[in-house]
Amino acid sequence: MDVFGRQAQEEGLSRIETDGKRLFVHYCVTCHGETGEGDGQNASTLAPAPPDFRASLPVHQPAYWKQIIEAGSVAVGRSPLCPPWGRTLPSDDITALVAYLGVLSRPAGQKPVEPAAKAPASP
């Protein structure tokens, strides 16, 4: 039995998705909620309320998500409540966030293919 490897593999996220998740938790969950359902701590104070990512993300392409992250929701003709992060976060961070949105946009149970799965689980 590999006790170390067993518990470390739980989430099945790739490195860049893990990075994106860390950023999402730091910058986004306060409004968008842990799972992107739009139920963050601050969501109730917002009008319009943040969308449920499970429904809203698949409608658009990652390039559209990226545009909102970089230039704010106002850049796509929505409310100004989601601020622009393009001058705050380096482009690698935004790429990582987009990658993690890709995870959130997948229906539950359809886990991402782990690129790391090609590598050994653990020594």
């Binding site: 490897g5 590598a119 050994p120 689980a121 653990s122 020594p123």
Partner: peptide
């Protein structure tokens, strides 16, 4: 040492490590 080898002193690191 891409793959784990028992008692190997310096194996390749898995993504978790």
């Amino acid at each position: 040492a891409h793959q784990p080898i028992p008692y190997w002193s310096d194996p390749m690191r898995s993504p978790q490590l």
